[in-house]
């Protein structure tokens, strides 16, 4: 079974600098490149029809490294297998070129992970459309592998969620290999929602071991192969107003924002709610002295009495 693998490389220079100096199992960028190339070569060697695409997320920019727009033609080398060499050198030269472009900036801005992810999705979409589907239904088994070192970027929450929805629609699996840095909630969700694996590296120096064991097989084969994945994901809901974890939330019927108490105007989408609904919802407010809340949910006496309206109190767990 052939697969279409799109790899997204997180190339944040500062994070790689830190990864190389990590107290436990450090991983310099050079070693990462070494393992990565071996993994990619293994992928194209596994099946003649396997397709690879490599995208890089760099500070403030994202780029497609392979297949390259202007292929770098390497010197013929009797000691290496040409397809490997074409792939590997395209990636290296692409990264070098992009690093040269950003070398003159003074400040490090966050990497454009969403940009790279979107490019990968677009590329997969193009190949999927171009492919005659009649021949074989799952001729292409597309998956994206994100090799991440940066922490979550809160401003990219909505774009990432949109990318996840697109991936779901395209039936693209998103795998995440967290090489360095704190766990990222966004990428955990991306993997979970698309049926992929999220792996946090405990031994960075054994990167290739993780890559081959978890991400080399086609997603369709994983039911049989049983690949590792994250064992717990944080699904708890925090209110948008105080960022407290809530058991009962009030959800905006327009944009699905969550609040720990009824609000007259949704702070996210500015939708106004009728007074009657507010009264009704107020009467339904939880009165528990929640252990999680820091006094934000005051135990004021409920408005009382029955009121009209179609409220939308939603219990979340």
């Amino acid at each position: 079974m052939s697969t279409l693998l799109a790899v997204v490389l997180d190339l944040a220079p500062a994070q790689w600098h830190a990864a190389a100096k990590a107290s436990t199992s450090p991983l310099p960028l050079a070693t990462f490149i070494q393992h990565l190339n071996a993994f990619l070569n293994a992928h194209i060697a596994a099946n003649n029809d396997n397709i690879i695409a490599v995208f890089a997320a760099l500070p403030g920019t994202s780029v497609m490294l392979y297949p390259a727009a202007e292929p770098h033609v390497p010197v013929p080398d009797a000691n290496s297998y040409t397809p490997f060499k074409l792939l590997d050198s395209a990636i290296i030269h692409g990264i070098e070129r992009e690093l040269d472009v950003i070398a003159d900036s003074d400040n490090e801005v966050p990497v454009a992970l969403v940009g790279a992810l979107s490019k990968a999705l677009c590329y997969i979409n193009r190949l999927t459309i171009a492919q005659p589907t009649a021949k074989n239904e799952h001729a292409l088994d597309p998956h994206i592998l994100v090799l991440s070192v940066s922490p979550d970027l809160s401003s990219s929450y909505i774009p990432i969620m949109n990318a996840i929805f697109s991936a779901q629609k395209l039936k693209v699996t998103i795998d995440v290999c967290k090489i360095y840095g704190p766990e990222t909630v966004f990428l955990q969700q991306a993997a979970h929602l698309t049926g992929g694996s999220y792996i946090y590296l405990e031994r960075r120096d054994a990167l290739l071991q993780y890559l081959t064991m978890s991400f080399l097989s086609a997603p369709a084969l994983r039911k049989t192969l049983s690949v590792p994945t994250q064992d717990k994901i944080d699904f708890r809901v925090a209110c948008f107003c105080h960022k407290n974890i809530v058991d009962i939330g009030f959800v905006c019927s327009v944009c699905l924002s969550i609040f720990c108490q009824p609000v007259p105007v949704c702070s996210t989408c500015k939708t106004r709610f009728p007074m009657k609904i507010l009264q009704r919802l107020n009467a339904a407010r939880p009165l528990l002295p929640s252990a999680n809340s820091n006094g934000a949910a005051r135990n004021s006496s409920p408005a009382g009495g029955r009121t009209n309206g179609n409220g939308n109190a939603t219990r979340t767990r």
Binding site: W16, L29, I33, E96, L99, S105, N107
Partner: peptide, 20 residues
């Protein structure tokens, strides 16, 4: 310094073939 970091990253790409 960002410039130093980028330079360091570039350094890491040297001799990738031998590395591999």
């Amino acid at each position: 310094d960002f410039k130093t970091l980028v330079h360091e990253a570039k350094q890491n790409l040297q001799n990738w073939e031998t590395n591999l």
